[in-house]
Amino acid sequence: MVTASELEETLRTHLREDVLEFTLARRNRVFSKVRNGSHRQAVKLFQDMGGHLSVITSVDLGEELELVYHFELHPLQVSLKTSAPRGNPRIETISDIYPSAAWYEREAMEMMGITVVNHPDPRHLFLPDDYTEYPLRRF
């Protein structure tokens, strides 16, 4: 059992000013944004707390592309965001920490065109292999 304030404190002590946002919403939903690069450290923290990776969402913010990592840290539901500029959307993989992240990252790569760095298997997952566009991006 971890409360939202404890989680915020842990994140802020380990990541310091890399924690850009931290909000607690209804029904134990926590939304937090960290600087690109330090998300791996946060994910490792979540793993030590016994977190369960639900899914990774990719969002097109216009100037930036965002990845949202959804964790269950009982009883909290944590959504950890990190973003990279649209011109050079490089975000490092977390699939070495959570093996099941590999497929979610593959989806983010093919659908949103985010370059996941150090991904072990960067093939297309849902789209055909010769498909070159990124269907979920907004133009």
């Binding site: 639900s54 899914v55 969402t57 969002v59 097109d60 949202v68 959804h70 959504s79 099941s100 497929w103």
Partner: peptide, 23 residues
């Protein structure tokens, strides 16, 4: 698992759907 982000319009900004089989 559904993640919905809204931008105040009638249309959602992003809907993410994760079905159990995916996991």
């Amino acid at each position: 698992f559904h993640y919905v982000r809204s931008n105040g319009t009638f249309y959602p900004e992003r809907v993410k759907i994760r079905a159990p089989t995916y996991a």
